[in-house]
Simulated scan of single mutants.
Amino acid sequence: MTTNGRCWAAAFGLTLMTAACGASDTDAGRESTPIQRAPVPQSEFTPVEIEATIDRLVAEINKTSIQPTQLTVLLKELDGFFAPIATGANRAMGELGAAERVTGNVLGTNRASTEAMAHQTRQIEQAATEGTEGIAITPFGEANMDAIDDAVAKGIPVVTLETDLASSTRSIYVGIDNTSAGNTAGETLLPMLPRPPGTVIVHGTEEATWVDGVKRTQAAQAVLANAGYNVLVQQLNYLHEAEDVEALKAAIDAADPPVVGLIGVFSVSYRCAMAADAAGLPDLPIVAFDFEPQTVAYMRQGRIKATHVQRQYYTGYLGPYIVYGIKTIGLGATQQMLAPQLVDGTRFDLGVDVVPAEKVDGFNDFLDEIGAEQ
């Protein structure tokens, strides 16, 4: 971690300690200390428009008198891909706590995958029972929906993070628009390809139950197909890497016309490079998704030309602020503040960072500066 990153983390630690002290009910309705956001390091990767939207929301909240509120943030996990989400959520809770507005916790399931969904449902129910006044959550799927709807029916606003449940009564979703993200990934690969004909393999999903995944896959597929390429979707196998790479290699070997590029639209997309190497085609252009260490290593080797990184830190950071905004200024006013990034009135599109291989170290430094490295 850089010196600036360490200083920011230290300042945040003090803020979080203040948040843990909470505010008493006697504070309700009085003027409060204005919310002070931690300064964001300036970089070419700083999402300026998103920062401006957050500042606008905070300024509107600061016009209100203090309303001590208990919030709960429920994440699928607290490490790996979700570590930056946890960092952002904790930082926002700390800033709101320092202004005597919010108390609460950021929790993960800490369970095996087969138990995690049921455990998260129990967490929602317990939070509602114990008096939480707002929930931000990375839901596992529709099995959580009844618990979310029950919480909303009790007057508890729910904001979904990273994974949406649009058919639930959640107020707002914060994350990427998967169709837009897939389009962006396809457009990134296009200039690297030779002219058609040729086959491009999309390492994605066609599983109908994974709606967001299918949207991202189909969007990338459409961009490449519309450009005249034969596009094959190779179903990813998250749990079994060797089998996944072998299936990708087999698809490369069998393709007619020959494969001219690959695109991975999920975190294990570095496997595209593994499969291309196994097929004896190390020069195939490949673009990836997310910022896994293996992806970064292949980018430094020049094997992966670019990746598309979700803004997990901002996913977590926005959650508590949006929930508190709904509680204090109302849903309509909160939506108005979020309007520049709000799609269909309920989906906050964070977009993705397009990181070319030659800028991987600069982007890594930016993540380090904000404490969002994975």
Rank of each mutant, 00 (worst) to 15 (best):
L284H: 08
Y229M: 00
I54V: 14
G213H: 02
L262A: 05
G104I: 07
A11S: 11
F348P: 05
T209N: 08
Q310C: 03
V296A: 12
G213W: 01
Q312W: 09
A242Q: 11
R195L: 10
I66C: 12
D256I: 04
E44W: 08
I326K: 11
H308N: 14
A222T: 09
D150N: 11
Y238I: 07
F289Q: 14
E246A: 12
K154D: 08
M1G: 12
A9N: 08
A357Q: 11
V73S: 03
A11W: 12
K305Y: 11
E77D: 09
G134P: 04
G175H: 07
A98S: 13
E207A: 14
H203R: 03
V231Y: 00
V174F: 02
L16E: 06
A279V: 12
N237H: 00
M192F: 11
T307H: 15
G228K: 01
V202Y: 10
E292H: 12
E60L: 06
Q234T: 02
M17Y: 13
Y321C: 03
A9S: 09
E51S: 08
G264V: 05
D149L: 11
E246D: 08
R56Q: 13
A208I: 11
G141Y: 04
P41K: 07
L78H: 02
Q221R: 14
T209D: 01
P282E: 02
L318M: 13
V200M: 03
A273Q: 05
G134R: 07
A112H: 00
D55L: 01
Y313C: 06
Q374G: 15
T184Q: 14
E369W: 10
E206C: 05
S65K: 15
P41S: 11
L331H: 04
I286K: 09
N144W: 09
G261A: 06
D277H: 10
S43I: 10
R311C: 03
V214L: 07
Q123E: 11
R303H: 03
R30T: 09
V260G: 00
A247E: 03
I329N: 04
V352T: 15
V309W: 11
E60S: 12
R216I: 05
E142P: 05
G351Y: 06
P196I: 06
E206K: 15
Q336D: 14
T103K: 13
V265W: 01
S171K: 14
L165W: 10
G80I: 08
D149Q: 11
D27I: 01
A19R: 06
F140Y: 15
A20C: 10
R347S: 13
D365C: 03
C7S: 15
K359D: 13
G175S: 07
L74I: 15
A10N: 09
E142H: 07
G175A: 08
L193I: 01
V233Q: 01
I201F: 00
L318A: 06
M145S: 13
R303V: 13
S269R: 02
P356A: 05
Q341M: 14
M299F: 05
